[in-house]
Amino acid sequence: MSDTVSTPLGETWRRLLRNRSFVIGAVVVSLIVAVAVLAPLIAPHDPLRNNFRTRLQPPGEIFWFGTDHFGRDILSRILHGGRISLIIGASTVVVTGIFGTAIGAVAGFFRALDEPIMRLMDAIMAFPAILLAMAIAAVMGASVTNVVIALSIATTPHTARIVRGSVLVVREMEYVEAARALGASELRVLFRHVLVNVTGPLIVRLTYVFAIAILAEAALSFIGVGPPPPAPSFGNIIANGRDFMIVAPWITIFPGLAIIAVVLGLNLLGDGLRDVLDPRTRI
């Protein structure tokens, strides 16, 4: 912060742009998002059209990533599947962000509620997250919305714990005391002085939530409780390919590589954001 002419926001931005992880992650994620948004325009084939004459074609000139047992183009399915996987990831980030912040802020700011709320969060975290999400998604019925709800329930407690931790630190700061001394109401203190100062750790956590959600969606679809077919998602393309692993391993391999690319990009982005926004927790 020695640079006195720059605003804090400008300085943060400059530091992010100097961070290699952030820049690589941002480029990878932007590219993937762009490809997913443009999928209907750039996909070489219809991802849903069955064609029995082109069943189980290996990767080649017409079908770059090969075809599945219905003769559907794997590349086109991955491009379209990316849309669904990214929508699920982004929605989970939004829902977890809202509930995680609200729950964590209430627990950290209002002392009397801290114990009961956080014990409940501990209880949810005692279940293996992936299994909890599977059980919820299966019980509620397979749909994109229910997958988002299930993943949000599984990722909210940890997010709430991070927000609460930051709120506990920030609420003891002198500027919060100053705001109180000036007569600011509790709600004004919470929103204007405390919450704005926990955004750093929150943004970092939500980036990782995005990555976790992409991985979890794939596992849910693989088990058979993800978004329903025939619409492709990364996970259900892999699940489809499982029975053809000997004759057509490309059905399984390529969507897995797509998942790795997305999650790696998000993890790099998260690491970069963490270095700059939340250096305390650097690992």
């Binding site: 991985l215 794939a218 596992a219 499982r242 399984t252 897995g256 998942i259 999650v263 993890n267 690491d271």
Partner: peptide, 22 residues
């Protein structure tokens, strides 16, 4: 380490089956 964090474990299992078992 970062790469390991980004690989779906069940998919890695499937790849292992293709390579080391089949």
């Amino acid at each position: 380490a970062l790469f390991g964090l980004s690989v779906p474990d069940f998919w890695l299992g499937l790849v292992f089956v293709v390579v080391f078992a089949l």
